[in-house]
């Protein structure tokens, strides 16, 4: 298999395991490029990419922009806060206006789940999902799995626990899809109010005891409490959450094996992770960020290649 089975990266749900492997293998090559003295290749010289961010982002946006620039693509940036969206323009109109300026690929983050699927039915450009509400965040899941693969090798049979706010997290959903497709075992752990009722149906077991979850897993992927998406109180206080579900050094010391700690960022230090854990040797949080650029380069490269076959 040497090309993706899909024209868009809307969600991990729509990828085949072979697609994920191809993205990983391509990312390996780009990681080598990123470690050279000159970190740039001319592959996407004639490709124009629009980064449409209808929701705030620092890491993902910078990571995508760097990946695009390292591939020599032309980049236009757009953020909803400083645009005509405020004047009442619809999503389709906004995107069509940008595409009229001959844009090939669209990287979009949007607060509405499914915005990318809607868009893919109406426009010609290839679409990459950089997060749609509480639905999916495919490149984050890919870079998470890629970072795990780097540390653990083949992920088949490996045990991963996702801690925290599963209900509001697009990272959790994409991670569960991705890890399942790679043959890993997934559990989720958090307060019952923040775990969706039917999560077991998509291949994630539920564990409410942090100690048991840590003792079981090879990797702990700790998510942020998304206060901005919580319209009601899901737990009494942050302090109580931190005491019951926060990961700290004491908890990790009780486990007799090394566990890798991951976090998609931004970290709320002292809430879901204490600083001594976030900065410890077990933490591969900064490697995740580094791998993010390589993964995004691979996705952009493979989708741009796809474009020629359709046009």
């Amino acid at each position: 298999m040497s090309q993706l089975s899909t024209r868009h990266l809307i969600g991990i749900k729509f990828l085949k395991p072979e697609d994920i492997q191809l993205i990983f293998e391509t990312a390996d090559k780009f990681k080598e490029v990123l470690n050279r003295p000159i970190k740039k290749v001319p592959s996407l010289r004639d490709v124009t990419i629009a980064n449409l961010f209808f929701e705030n982002s620092t890491r993902t946006r910078i990571s995508f922009e760097l990946a695009e620039k390292r591939l020599s693509a032309d980049v236009v940036n757009f953020s909803a806060s400083s645009s005509s969206v405020k004047k009442g323009e619809t999503l389709l109109d906004t995107v069509n206006n940008i595409l009229a300026m001959k844009v090939d690929l669209v990287v979009m983050r949007h607060p509405a789940p499914g915005a990318h699927i809607f868009l893919s039915k109406h426009i010609d450009a290839n679409i990459i999902n950089a997060g749609d509400g509480t639905h999916e965040h495919p490149t984050q899941a890919l870079l998470d799995a890629y970072s795990m693969r780097e540390k653990l090798g083949d992920l088949r049979g490996k045990k991963i626990v996702i801690f925290g706010d599963i209900l509001h997290s697009r990272v959790a959903l994409s991670n569960i899809f991705c890890l399942n497709k790679l043959g890993a075992k997934v559990k989720v752990c958090g307060p019952p109010t923040l775990i969706p009722k039917y999560i077991h149906r998509i291949g994630a077991e539920v564990e409410y005891d942090v100690n048991k979850a840590l003792a079981w897993c090879d990797v702990a992927n700790v998510l942020r409490i998304q206060l901005e998406r919580q319209d009601i109180k899901y737990f009494p206080s942050l302090r109580e959450y931190s005491r019951s579900f926060g990961i700290n050094k004491k908890l990790l010391d009780r486990v007799d094996k090394p566990i890798y700690i991951m976090h998609p960022g931004p970290i709320n230090r002292g809430v879901e992770l204490t600083s001594d854990v976030a900065d410890s040797k077990q933490s591969i949080i900064l490697q995740q960020v580094e791998n993010g650029v390589a993964i995004r380069m691979a996705v952009l490269y493979l989708l741009a290649e796809k474009r020629s076959h359709n046009s």
């Binding site: 040497s2 090309q3 090559k29 490029v33 592959s43 004639d46 591939l71 490269y301 290649e305």
Partner: peptide
């Protein structure tokens, strides 16, 4: 040296190019 990313026939071929390791 792998030259895949530097080729000028990227996206102009019928089959995709797969890079090797440099």
């Amino acid at each position: 040296l792998d030259v895949t990313f530097y080729r000028d026939d990227f996206r102009r071929r019928s089959t995709p190019l797969i890079a090797s390791k440099t």
